[in-house]
Simulated scan of single mutants.
Amino acid sequence: MTKFESEIKKVSQSDEKIFKFISDFNNFESLIPQDKIKNWQSTEDTCKFSVDGIGDAGLRIVEKQASTTVKYSTDGKVPFNFFLWIQLKQVAENDTRIKLTIKADLNPMMKMMVGKHVKKFLNMLGDAIANYGGY
């Protein structure tokens, strides 16, 4: 398994509000880049979408630990299997730090091809969560 981690992001919200938001895929459509992701469909626990240049993909929530962690896994036909999790740590009132991690089952060639893109995606999603104003 190959591990990718985002930078630690600061969110000016409580861990409880962020947890509630990231525990429901219906909230994610506002975070994704509309120019890269198409055909978004979601329920609370699953989502399906198309990624330009990659194809169809899906995710499902596989574990929730109140106000600390949400874990996601691939769902359906995807180019490679991976787990994504978002960790939350509240350090003060309305000051929560988040870190996103992906563990992916990649062969060395795939790692070279997608590694930079995965890291960029993690930081982009982390920034989107940190800067989202609708909590």
Rank of each mutant, 00 (worst) to 15 (best):
K3F: 02
S6Y: 03
I8A: 06
K9E: 03
K9Q: 13
V11K: 06
S12A: 13
S12D: 10
Q13D: 07
I18S: 05
I22A: 00
I22V: 11
S23D: 13
S23M: 09
D24G: 11
F25V: 05
N26T: 13
N27S: 07
E29Q: 09
S30A: 13
S30R: 14
S30I: 14
L31I: 13
I32T: 13
I32N: 15
K38D: 11
K38I: 08
W40Q: 01
W40R: 02
Q41L: 07
D45S: 04
C47T: 08
C47A: 14
F49I: 12
F49Q: 13
V51L: 15
V51G: 12
D52L: 15
D52A: 12
I54H: 07
I54D: 06
G55I: 03
D56E: 13
A57G: 12
G58F: 01
L59D: 08
L59C: 06
R60G: 08
V62R: 03
V62H: 01
V62M: 08
E63S: 12
K64M: 11
Q65H: 15
T68S: 06
T68R: 11
T69W: 04
V70P: 00
K71S: 06
K71D: 01
Y72Q: 04
S73Q: 05
D75V: 03
K77E: 12
K77Q: 15
V78L: 11
V78I: 15
P79W: 15
N81R: 14
F82W: 14
L84M: 13
W85I: 09
I86H: 06
L88M: 04
K89T: 04
K89F: 01
Q90G: 04
V91R: 00
V91W: 00
T96C: 01
I98F: 02
I98S: 05
L100Y: 09
L100D: 07
L100H: 12
I102F: 09
K103R: 13
D105M: 14
P108M: 09
P108G: 03
P108S: 06
M110E: 10
K111W: 10
K111L: 10
M112N: 05
M112H: 05
M113R: 06
V114Q: 00
G115Q: 05
G115C: 01
K116W: 05
K116A: 07
K116H: 07
V118R: 12
F121P: 10
F121G: 10
F121Q: 10
L122F: 08
L125Q: 15
G126S: 06
D127P: 08
A130G: 06
A130H: 02
N131D: 09
N131I: 09
Y132M: 08
G133A: 05
G133F: 09
G134P: 02
